[in-house]
Nucleic acid binder design. Structure first.
Length: 909
DNA sequence: CACTCCCGCCAATTA
DNA sequence: TAATTGGCGGGAGTG
């Protein structure tokens, strides 16, 4: 039976084309089938493969069946099959068939496809042989075509009520292909949430209902991660290579986040690092992100491959590259079938390169919402529920997922975990770290070129910043630092993000540009530290920071008022490294989600804010603001944060007050409340100005730091500066000027230990390098520029060290902020942890984070945490475990930053 | 020859 | 342990 069937099938399938292989393949298939059939089928049912399959494609869930392509065979007689084949064989026929298939997916019905065609074909039979030869041409077998057939089977917009389940086996059999091929399709579809896995051989078809949301999310994530890059790319395109590198750098960071965020893919990676990381799903998301972030909407395969290889910087093994490209073709074929991209060619210096152009939707409405949602998701993830989160996100649209997730979520299944973002995060983080390292290097180089003076500092800063911080850095501080404009400088990635929102072009370009770089460098390196930024870290557990400033501008620009806040956050997020953002979001989500943003309880807000803040701060926003930010972000969470930040800043004076409060929360709250004013932030006259330096010039936000009173530390409180910094800030380029953060806090004793902030200048002195380690951290220079006392941390040094320690400890809230603060800084330091914690927002999360951190507080731990946090996406953040893993994984890359991170990670562990 | 990318081995995961 | 997933890369088809 089977055999006969097979033969039919084969024919039907059209394999004719390749004989040799085909046959072989067929044989194999057959084999498999037989095997399979029994196996799978069994489960489900008895299998009558032959029959089953044929008929309903879906019907049998049973896997095994594949075998027969049943359908075809069944319906038709063998002869028919032959005919079909024949028809296929002839070119014309083929075309027809293809068209039919394509067009008429209808056929969905499996049978139809072939059969129909067959029928036509039949006519031709004359040349059966021919058919055979050609018919099956590769094209016919292409994944794209297969995908079309697959898609034809399901409605683009299924009724919400009805859940369509997809049995892989059935589909495979129906379509007459190996299951393996279906996985390729499903994985890509899953990355876009068009389907979700419900159970073992079962997928749930969601259709395109959620596609726009998914794309939006991806876009947001992509902006963070790749935004800059892409921008550059375009510009740079000429030099693909460069792009690639840049991208890579960035990518790593970004990658993590995005993936994580979204969906499962992330998750998958997480758990296993292994496979999932490389998962086609993740690659698909990243690939899509590249398009969404790309101004031109055109992405060449080689660039995409380079970027996606995150791995390393350079690494790029040729073989790896090739493999990546192969995979990209697979993904591209599916995306093409979805009409999201189309193949084009880009003529470059070298010549013509294959590329793909995004032809799908570009604008996504409801960003805000989405973002929020995203946040929520993230939050979830962060929490630990991550899986759910993911699911949730998916679920949002589709229930199925939920189920799936549930399943998965089930305790421990690895898979679940994988799915869960968390895991992925870790990995991502690691990658990010690497990337960061790379980036840093680059940056450093650039910087050096540009600016020299601060090199050291810068370096350290850079490093830190590089990693995750980027985004952060950019923020106000950056600007400040930069003296220029570059807020983004901090990190490419960040920049990118930012840019995407706000600045796209300029910023982006900057990054790349040397000058900018220089700035950035400064920025970066130092930047982060940057003085501008405001913030810092603290060692103790409690500190945190915040920064504000610049961003504000953005915010303000973007949104004024409350809305602004939100925007901010969004921007921030954007700006911030993806991971951060995500994290944020999650945090936000968590906390915020509901009330969210604005209204959330203070406490929550605080947390969130903190988290966010940093981010926001981070964000760069450069002056430009881009609308995007606004749109994108949307999330309230961020905004809240931002607001707070602002408040702080504004308050700079108040800051002290805050300080008095000791607890951050209160402050935050207050701030928040004040926030309304915030809008002002911009206004803030002074502050803004500083910031403005950057581009925007708008107001800055203040940044602050916050310290929590850690238990240990006891006394801390925090500080902030607010923004005042601006004035202070203005640092010239390299150095970061001090931020103006005005305030600070201090715990008595704690202070001693703490680091605080620093003015940029100071910072520089510090060694920035990664060496901050403890000492550095400890030190803070506190010069304060601002009236208040600002604390400054040198960005670099201080931050790092401090951060790590404290931050980690600090509960999430503070920490995050810190992290955020200067991305760079943060990153270097504890920021990471902070972030995570921050991200956590949640108690839960916090707990996790905290645990690690708290206990020790060690700087190391702290750092790691940050580290992770940064890199990871929110979701990722969520998983503590992941982090740990990450940490572990993270190797210490050379870069100090990385190291730091690693350290922290370890410590965390 | 370069670009595409099919095919299926086989390892990682799951159940 | 068997089945399911899915990474991976050889190498064929196409232009």
């Amino acid at each position: 039976m089977e055999v006969s069937v097979l033969s039919l099938r084969d024919l039907a399938s059209a394999r004719p084309g390749r004989r040799g292989r085909a046959e072989a393949a067929q044989k194999e298939n057959i084999f498999d089938r037989s095997r399979m059939a029994p196996k799978t089928p069994i489960k489900n049912e008895p299998i009558d493969l032959s029959k089953q399959k044929g008929c309903t494609p879906e019907r049998n869930p049973i896997t095994p069946v594949k075998i027969i392509d049943k359908p075809q065979a069944d319906p038709w007689t063998p002869t028919a099959n032959l005919k079909m084949l024949v028809s296929a064989a002839s070119p014309d026929m083929r075309d027809r068939e293809k068209k039919k298939e394509l067009f008429r997916p209808i056929e969905n019905s499996e049978q139809n496809d072939t059969p129909d065609s067959l029928q036509y074909d039949i006519v031709d039979d004359s040349t059966v042989e021919e058919f055979e030869k050609r018919r099956p041409s590769r094209k016919q077998k292409s994944l794209g075509l297969l995908c079309q057939k697959f898609l034809a089977r399901y409605p683009n917009y299924p009724l919400s009520t009805e859940k369509t389940t997809i049995s892989l086996d059935e589909v495979a059999s129906i379509l007459g292909v190996e299951r393996r091929r279906i996985y390729d399709i499903v994985n890509v579809l899953e990355s876009l949430h068009l389907v979700s896995r419900v159970a073992k051989n079962q997928y749930c078809w969601h259709g395109r209902h959620n596609l726009s949301q998914t794309l939006k999310k991806l876009q947001e994530a992509g902006e963070l991660q790749y935004g800059e890059l892409m921008t550059f790319q375009h510009k740079e395109q000429d030099s693909d290579y460069k792009f690639g590198e840049r991208k890579r750098e960035t990518v790593p960071e970004s990658q993590d986040r995005p993936l994580l965020d979204f969906s499962e893919p992330d998750c998958s990676s997480a758990s296993a690092n292994s496979r999932k990381d490389k998962s086609l799903r993740i690659m698909s998301q990243k690939f899509v992100m590249l398009f969404l972030v790309s101004k031109t909407k055109i992405v060449t395969l080689d660039i995409a491959a380079k970027i996606l290889i995150e791995e390393t910087q350079d690494t790029v093994d040729h073989s790896k590259f090739k493999t990546k490209v192969r995979r990209l073709y697979d993904i591209a074929n599916v995306l093409t079938s979805l009409d999201l991209i189309k193949k084009v060619h880009v003529t470059e210096e070298r010549g013509r390169k294959p590329a793909f152009k995004w032809i799908g939707p570009v604008e996504f409405s409801g960003k805000t919402e989405t973002q929020r949602e995203a946040c929520a998701r993230y939050q979830i993830c962060a929490t630990g529920k991550q899986r759910f989160t993911r699911h949730a996100s998916f679920n949002g649209a589709q229930p199925c997922e939920g189920t799936r997730r549930k399943v998965s979520s089930e305790p421990n299944s690895p898979r679940h975990e994988r799915q869960a973002n968390i895991v992925n995060s870790d990995e991502h983080c690691s990658k990010m770290v690497n990337l960061a390292a790379v980036c840093r290097q680059k940056i450093e180089e650039d910087t050096r070129n540009n600016a020299c003076g601060t090199e050291t500092i810068l370096n350290s800063a850079r490093n830190s910043s590089v990693t995750s911080p980027f985004s952060l850095l950019p923020l106000p501080g950056d600007s400040d630092f930069c003296v220029n404009p570059l807020p983004q400088a901090a990190f490419p990635v960040v920049q990118a993000e930012v840019p995407s929102f706000s600045l796209p072009a300029g910023i982006n370009s900057q990054v790349p540009h040397p000058s900018t770089q220089a700035a950035s460098k400064t920025e970066d390196g130092k930047p982060a530290l940057v003085p501008s930024q405001p913030f810092l870290c603290f060692p103790s557990s409690s500190l945190f920071m915040l920064c504000g400033g610049l961003q504000e501008n953005n915010l303000s620009e973007t949104q004024p008022t409350a809305g602004d806040k939100g925007n901010w956050s969004a921007e921030a997020q954007a700006a911030v490294p993806p991971a951060l953002c995500q994290k944020r979001s999650s945090h936000k989500c968590t906390l915020p989600s509901p009330p969210v943003d604005d209204e959330e309880p203070v406490a929550k807000k605080q947390n969130m804010e903190q988290t966010d803040l940093p981010l926001s701060l981070v964000v760069p926003k450069k002056p430009f603001e881009s609308p995007r930010t606004e749109s994108t972000p949307g999330s309230g969470c961020r905004s809240a944060v931002h607001l707070e930040t602002y408040h702080l800043d504004r308050e700079s004076p108040t800051a002290p007050e805050a300080g008095s409060k000791d607890s951050t929360k209160p402050l935050d709250c207050q701030e928040q409340e004040k926030q309304p004013q915030n809008k002002d932030p911009d206004e803030p006259p002074p502050g803004n100005e500083h910031i403005p330096k950057e581009n925007a010039s708008q107001p800055f936000q203040p940044q602050y730091l916050y310290v929590q009173p850690p238990a240990g530390l006891s006394s801390f409180n925090f500080l902030f500066s607010a923004n005042q910094a601006p004035g202070a800030i203005s640092l010239p380029s390299n150095q970061l000027p001090s931020l103006s953060v005005p305030c600070v806090m201090v715990p008595s004793a704690a202070l001693a230990s703490f680091p605080l902030v620093c003015s940029p200048s100071f910072t520089s002195p510090l060694s920035h390098d990664g060496s901050f380690p403890a000492a550095a951290s400890m030190n803070f220079s506190m010069s304060s520029l601002a009236s208040t006392t600002p604390v400054f941390i040198s960005t670099t040094a201080v931050v790092t060290p401090k951060v790590s320690p404290t931050p980690s400890v600090d509960p999430s809230q503070p920490a995050h902020p810190a992290l955020h603060l200067s991305p760079v800084l943060t990153r270097s330091c504890g920021a990471v942890k902070l972030d995570s914690p921050v991200c956590v927002g949640h108690p839960v999360t916090l707990l996790k984070l905290q645990q690690p951190s708290s206990a020790p507080l060690t700087p190391k731990s702290i750092r790691p945490a940050h580290h992770e946090a940064f890199f990871k996406t929110p979701g990722s953040l969520g998983d503590p475990v992941t982090w740990k893993k990450n940490e572990g994984n993270q190797t210490r890359n050379a870069s100090s930053v990385q190291r730091r991170l690693e350290i922290s990670g370890t410590s965390a562990d």
